[in-house]
Design a protein around this nucleic acid. Structure first.
Lengths: 169, 169
DNA sequence: ATTGACCCGTTGCTACAAGCAACGCAGATT
DNA sequence: AATCTGCGTTGCTTGTAGCAACGGGTCAAT
């Protein structure tokens, strides 16, 4: 265990046995023996080794040290990520809804306009002595009157809305 | 350092040198030598010692272990706090807007009702031979007809909305 | 192909110190 | 006084850590 850890961490640091030996004032073969488990560094050397390798003695010895703080940090980090994701999705969804609504408004307005053109104000030829026909005729006339005046604003507003809510790369 | 730590922690655990020696399968004098710094336990014995004393090797060796992760945790915690604050403010703003809209709806509805009462259906006395008057008269009548039927729902809805969006301590 | 550089594992040997056994001291209790 | 508990010190033996030497593998340059 200790031997394997010394070897793994030394390599992770990009040091050769000779380089590590030089830093610890021992010969290279001593490092080799440690790594093969043929000998064990004494306590003082363990401390110096941990400093050179920037690794706690506990880790070198293979002692399991629980770090609850790392776990807490990880949990927090993941939750922050989820929150950010949800906020982004909410925003995207809202944009899509408005985009669709503006497109619908434009299509409906144009469709009604086309239908009115095709119908060509049929109420002008109706028999206004019939009370029902009279009321409907007037309502139709009022609607047509209103629509013609509001249609430009609706079309313009829809086009601007579509532009502002388009999906941006 | 190591010798002092072994002595202090052994005593803190309420163990005599003989008791600790028995648990480690060494003679008592060996413990005494460790504590006086006359000899040093080897690496395997260090691990066993840390287990018996329930103290990490790092602590026995007097090694300082820095915890940068605590700083990271603090930064994350503060960011979470900011996000929560922003979400709460957004919610409060939305509540205020709807509250205002419901109040406006109520006031406008009541105002129109009062005006209609005061006007007392004036279109009944108009001259319907004039085409413009005829159209406006019918529109007025239709509006009045609709308003009288929708007003209860509007008032009730506005009152409920005002209640639900009131500011809560 | 050969040579040199780099890296690492294994063996033999010496010196050192860890751990055992013995001795002794101090304080508290009977 | 004697006994018990706890601990420090000394002398000795044994095991092994570390040094020096030997050797093998891989890669790049000539």
């Amino acid at each position: 265990m200790l031997n394997e850890n010394i070897k793994a961490i030394r390599k992770a640091k990009g040091l050769s046995q000779a380089e590590l030996a030089s830093k610890l004032n021992v010969v290279r073969q001593t490092i080799s023996k440690w790594e093969q488990g043929l000998s064990v560094p004494d306590a003082d050397m363990l401390i110096t080794l941990s400093e050179i390798l920037e690794t706690p003695v506990s880790t070198l010895l293979g002692e399991t040290v629980t770090e609850p703080k790392t776990a807490d940090l990880k949990v927090l980090s993941e939750k922050l990520e989820i929150i950010n994701l949800q906020l982004a999705q909410k925003k995207a969804t809202r944009r899509k809804i408005f985009h669709g609504l503006f497109i619908l408004l434009l299509l409906v307005t144009v469709a009604i306009f086309v239908i009115l053109i095709l119908l060509n104000s049929p109420y002008l030829n109706w028999n206004y002595r019939d009370p029902e026909t009279s009321v409907i005729g007037v309502a139709f006339h009022a609607f047509e009157w209103l629509f013609v005046r509001l249609m430009p604003f609706a079309v313009l507003g829809a086009i601007i809305g579509i532009f502002l809510t388009r999906k941006r790369g």
